[in-house]
Each structure stands twice: as C-alpha cells, then as structure tokens.
C-alpha cells in the first residue's frame, strides 16, 4: 500500500528531476556569444545601481556573474605559467581563491557607475584550437568606443571566458608577465601579499 502511494510521488519527483536536468542542460547549452551577452548584461545592471550598491554590494552581485562566465581556475593557471607546476596543491588552491577575489574586486571597482554606456556584440570567430573569440565594443557617450574581444573555451560543461583583450591589450598576457615577474623575483608569499593588498585597496574605495 505504501509503495503504491509512493509511486505517484516518485513519478512526480522523477519528472521534477528531469525538468531540472533539462534546465541544467539549457544552461550548459548557452553559446559562447550568449555567455558574453549574459555577462555584459549583468555587468551593466550592476553599473546602473552601482552607487547605491557600494563596493560590497557590487562585489556580491558580480561574484556569481564572474564565476559562472569566466574559467577562473584556468585563468589563474595560465597567468602563473610554468611556475604553476612548482607550487604545492595548497598554494595552487590559495592562489586560485585570491585570484578569483581580485578578479571580481577589480570588476566591482572599475565598473562602479553608469553614464549611458552600452555593450554591443559585433561578430564571432572560431580559433584554430577550438576556442571562440566574441568581438564586442563598449560605447561610452562623449568618448571613444572601447573594443573588447572575449576569448572563450569550452570547459566540458559550458563556454567560459579565459581572456579579454581591450583595445588590443590582452588581460591574460599582461597579468602573466606581471604575476610571473613577482613570483620569480620575490616569491610566492610576496605574490599573495601583493594580491591581498590590491583586494584590500579596492574594497576601501566606494
């Protein structure tokens, strides 16, 4: 009897589960262009209420937006380059954590208010190594457009941003030179201290 009563509930659960699976699948099926479009939308929304949110509010709202659209672990690994292999597992984890925090803090600091800016996606290209580059630009009223090229890779579940090239300057290449210089010249602890200083400086500003 009990089993009979459970059957409809189990069936309902199964249906719900499959729907959730379907939703997860729909999320995974976002194209590279859609990932960029969604992220830019989230960034603009935070900019529009940037002043009311303050740094902490912008940081909280952007954390998920950045973590689900960027492959932060992969970015951290590329930024550290060959030095990555020399780090212990604990150091790698610490570095990825503070790197993720710094990335979000940097977004929260640099996109703090709104004065009519708009993102437009222009085109997309496939790279020879199976990636996609989404070409976009940011229009700023009364100023020159800023060209943004997003490089994305499929991490198995979804397309994730691994590099942003702003007006020809690659964020990944810039960070790799900067981080490896500190790591080679001053060591891991100095690198961690400097990253934490940057996060702290960003958070002190409005």
């Amino acid at each position: 009897m009990i089993l009979k009563k459970l059957k409809p509930i189990t069936a309902l659960l199964l249906v719900l589960l499959s729907m959730m699976g379907g939703l997860a699948h729909a999320e995974a099926a976002l194209s590279a262009r859609e990932v960029v479009d969604k992220f830019q939308g989230q960034l603009l929304a935070v900019m529009k209420s940037g002043k009311q949110l303050g740094f902490a509010g912008r940081y909280d709202k952007l954390y998920d937006a950045v973590a689900t659209s960027h492959d932060l672990t992969k970015i951290a690994r590329i930024v550290i380059g060959k030095e990555w292999e020399k780090l212990t597992e604990a150091q790698q984890k610490n570095l990825t954590d503070v790197f993720s925090k710094l990335s979000v803090a940097s977004y929260a600091h640099n996109f703090k208010d709104y004065s009519g800016e708009a993102f437009t996606i222009d085109s997309e290209d496939n790279t020879t190594r199976g990636g996609v580059i989404v070409h976009a630009h940011l229009s700023i009223p009364g100023d020159k457009d800023v060209k943004f090229d997003y490089m994305l890779k499929d991490n198995g579940d979804s397309w994730r941003i691994i590099n942003i090239i702003a007006d020809g300057v690659s964020d990944l290449a810039l960070k790799r030179s900067d981080y490896t210089a500190v790591l080679q010249n001053e060591g891991f602890d100095a690198l961690m201290a400097k990253i934490n200083d940057k996060i702290s400086n960003y958070s002190k500003q409005e």
Binding site: K74, R77, I78, T127, R129, G131, I133, D149, M151, K153, I162, N163, I165, G168, V169, S170, L172, A173
Partner: peptide, 8 residues
Amino acid sequence: NTALDEEG
C-alpha cells in the same frame, strides 16, 4: 594577442 590561449 587574440591568438593567445593556453597552448599559445
């Protein structure tokens, strides 16, 4: 710069 990815 656009050609830069992990392998690159």
